[in-house]
Amino acid sequence: MNANIGIPHSGATPLVEMRDISIAFGGIKAVDHASVDLFPGEVVGLLGHNGAGKSTLIKILSGAYPRDAGQILINGEEAQIGNPRDAKAYGIETIYQTLALADNVDAAANLFLGRELLTGWGTLDDAAMEAEARKVMGRLNPNFRRFKEPVKALSGGQRQSVAIARAILFNARILIMDEPTAALGPHETAQVGELIKELKKDGIGIFLISHDIHDVFDLADRVAVMKNGQVVGYAKTTEVTKDEVLGMIILGKCPPTAIRGPGAID
């Protein structure tokens, strides 16, 4: 496997490079020698059917699963990621498909979960956290006002904006978004698209995971397609058509303008 998959930035160091990652659950190879990379200010769409291994691959990067084999490089240096705390220390923030919110506590408590602001006495500084929460939520979702309620009382879109706010609150350099618009209506989906463009400008690298090509194609600079735990191929979105990418997703067929991965057929 060649180390530098990203064509457009030959010579530059990728923000993230996952090399030859493998993980098996009870004999089933969920991810099988997969490699992906991501450059600053770039959006890479990770596509594939349900069960293709994209969420699993990304959970290895976010520290939720330990990998069986392979290497993770951040800014060209090997990174030790054994748990979610390690990943966050590298500036990797994740918006999970399930949102991973503690439903019984309020938005501010969720935003700062695991990284609470403390007063000089070592106690929770709820006022300061609420103030920060109001700031960041004001940017994402200006109509949001239910700061005192547990997040289970919120609508799907509001919960989603809490999850997104949590990811961008801590100056992430690498953002992983797993099906970020799955629970959203068209208006909110467009809002997330705007947010992604804005974050791109700040030089943040974004992995956008989806099983729906339409969500990803307009936002992503490149796509990586997975099937049965293997990477079918990589392509710039300017050089392939949606149909060709669909062919990669469904049949595992790699078009000539794409770079073949180990999972490609023929």
Binding site: A64, N83, P84, R85, A102, V105, L113, G114, P150
Partner: peptide, 15 residues
Amino acid sequence: FAIGGNPEAAELAGI
């Protein structure tokens, strides 16, 4: 309380 609300989320938050 976070663990009680969603143990998986608490784990993913680094707790």
